[in-house]
Structures are given as C-alpha cells and as structure tokens.
C-alpha cells in the first residue's frame, strides 16, 4: 500500500524528506476516507438515476408511464427507425463543434483583454459575468424576445442601421431553421463565454512572472511569447474549460427549447432536445434509449477529445 503512495511521490521533481511514521494498514483505507464522500454523493445523485434511466430504456411504457413489461431492444430499434434522427445527429455535431470552438477562441481574447489593468475593470468584469449568473433559460427567453419580428430589440437595432427591415420575413430569425439555429448557437456561445473566460483568467494568473521575464530576455515578440509561452502554460485550464464546454454544450437544452422548441418540425433539434420531444410525445422508452445513446456519444466525444489533446501524457 505504501508503495502506491511512494510511487506517486517519486514522480515529484525534487527529492523530499522521508515520510515519518507511515502506517500501511491505515493508508490502505486512506483513499476511501478522502474520496469516499464524493463517491457516495455521486452514486446517490447520479449513478443510481442513470441505472434507472438505462433500465427504463428496455421497458415498454404506456403514454403516461405505466410499465407494461420488458421489450428488449425495441425502443432502440424504434429510435433508429426515426426518420428525423440522422438530421438530429448531424445537427448535434455541428452544434458542439461550432459552439465550443467559437467559445474557446473568443474566450481566449476576452480573457486576455480582461486580464489587463484598466480603470473600471472590476465593473466590466461584473458585466461579463451576467450571462453566467442569469439562468440560461431566461437568457434564451430574452433573446427570443429581442429577436421578435417587428418589435424585437435586435431587429429595431438592425433596422436603424439599415441592415434588415424589422418587419420583413428575414427579421423573423427564429422562423427559419437555418437562421434560427445560427442564433441559437450564438446564444450558446454567449452564455458559455463568461465561464470559459473566467477559467482562462484564473489560468493566466498561475503563469509565473519569471517565464515572461525569460522570454523577454530572449527577445521574443509579444505574439511569440503568447503562443510559445502563455498558451502552453494555459493548457491545463484550457483543457478543463474545453471539456466542460463540450459536455455542457452537448447536453444543452434550454436554449433551443425556449427559442424554437426544436422546430420548425425537428429542424433545430439536437439529440438532447429530441430526447425531450420524444418524452413529451409519450415515447418514454424511446426517449430513455436516446438518453443512453446520447450518453455514449458524449463519452466517445470527450474521451476522443482528451486523447487528441493528450490529456494523460503528464499524469502517467
């Protein structure tokens, strides 16, 4: 047991004083004392409900949830038989890739900017936090309101600068699936930026000043310093932010639901929205099946992402 601890210690760069009074018996149980509460909470609040979800994907449910017995993989075959599923899956892919990558790029810039010292920075940072502090559902509702054809704030603004006639069909942004989906992605980026920027700002603060001094002494330009010094040092916080964003964006529900309900038809639905649509339509088993598929998808995406970004390279 001690060896585990020792091995962990030995990867530390510098020698350290010998541990005093290690007790093999206790140390075997030590991990449980530290991480046990976390595991218990996860098991209770997440794992058990997930088991229930997986179970319910193999049951035949009546419209209002009466359990009519097992039906094996029927729900899954029905789900894969849905003619709208392929479009929904493709849209989910676009949704995740576009929202996450735009969020990350914009947040890097925003973080850099808000990390500068300028008068009123505190207040500006408060403003930046607003979309994070407010409920995403309400943000989606106000965006929908601002996009109303005829009298929405954004349309009035666009009309004033002469870009769009506020009463024209174009101004009915959420009425068309393409423009509706683009606006929904914009809102998703909008609500993801504060958290991401803040994580990057926190990351920027762990970059030791000596590193910059060294770069400066080497005569590196500011741009070069940023790409060869700052960005690599930001890697841990960027990774955390990206992974969290991938998961949250993939599972994001209220934006699309409040703005277009996934419509017209299912033309702005992602898998998460479609799951809810199925549930509302009384296809409980199918909806649960999609939840399971949804989970498998996100797990594949996240681990592929971690693999690509060589998350493990340092840990092992």
């Amino acid at each position: 047991m001690t060896t585990h601890a020792e091995r962990g210690r030995s990867t530390r760069p510098r020698p350290r004083p010998r541990r005093r009074g290690s007790r093999p018996v206790l140390s075997g149980l030590a991990p449980l004392a530290w991480i046990g509460p976390a595991i218990a909470l996860i098991a209770f609040a997440v794992l058990w409900p997930v088991v229930k979800m997986a179970q319910s994907s193999t049951r035949h449910w009546s419209r209002y949830g009466v359990d009519l017995g097992s039906n094996g993989t029927d729900n899954y075959s029905k789900l894969f038989g849905e003619q709208d599923l392929s479009g929904v899956l493709m849209r989910t892919g676009i949704w995740v890739v576009v929202v996450v990558s735009v969020t990350m790029v914009v947040s890097l810039g925003v973080a850099q900017l808000f990390n500068q010292r300028f008068p009123g920075r505190t207040v500006a940072r408060w403003a930046l936090i607003a979309p994070w502090a407010a409920s995403v559902m309400m943000t989606a509702i106000i965006f929908k309101y601002m996009l109303y054809q005829g009298y929405g704030f954004i349309n009035i603004l666009l009309d004033d600068v002469g870009l769009v006639d506020r009463g024209s069909p174009t101004a009915d942004w959420l009425g068309h699936s393409t423009s509706g989906f683009i606006w929904e992605m914009a809102v998703a980026v909008f609500v993801s930026i504060p958290f991401t920027s803040y994580t990057v700002i926190a990351g920027l603060q762990t970059v030791p000043a000596e590193v910059y001094e060294a770069a400066k002494m080497d005569g590196a330009s500011k741009v070069r310093t940023y790409f060869s010094v700052t960005l690599p040092m930001l890697r841990p916080s960027l990774l955390v932010a990206a992974v969290i964003n991938v998961m949250n964006v993939f599972n994001s529900f209220p934006i699309i639901w409040e703005m277009t309900r996934g419509g017209p038809g299912y033309d702005t639905s992602t898998t998460t929205v479609f799951m809810w649509v199925l549930k509302k339509g009384g296809h409980i088993g199918e909806s649960a099946a999609l939840s399971v598929v949804n989970f498998l998808l996100v797990i594949v995406i996240v681990f592929a992402f971690l693999k690509v970004s060589k998350w493990n390279s340092e840990a092992d």
Binding site: A5, G8, A30, M53, S56, F295
Partner: peptide, 27 residues
C-alpha cells in the same frame, strides 16, 4: 497521491458530468 483506483475515480467523476439531468429525473 497515486493510489489504486485513482484514475478510475477521476474518470468516474468526469463521467458524472456527462449526463443530462433531464434524462435522470425519473430515478
């Protein structure tokens, strides 16, 4: 610490973040 099951624990933790709460409300 590097303890037995450390990685499993971290993956478990990561995985919990991947679930959609709407799918779990029944349980």
């Amino acid at each position: 610490k590097k303890f037995r099951g450390r990685k499993a624990f971290l993956i478990l933790v990561l995985v919990t973040q991947m679930f959609q709460p709407t799918a779990m409300v029944i349980g």
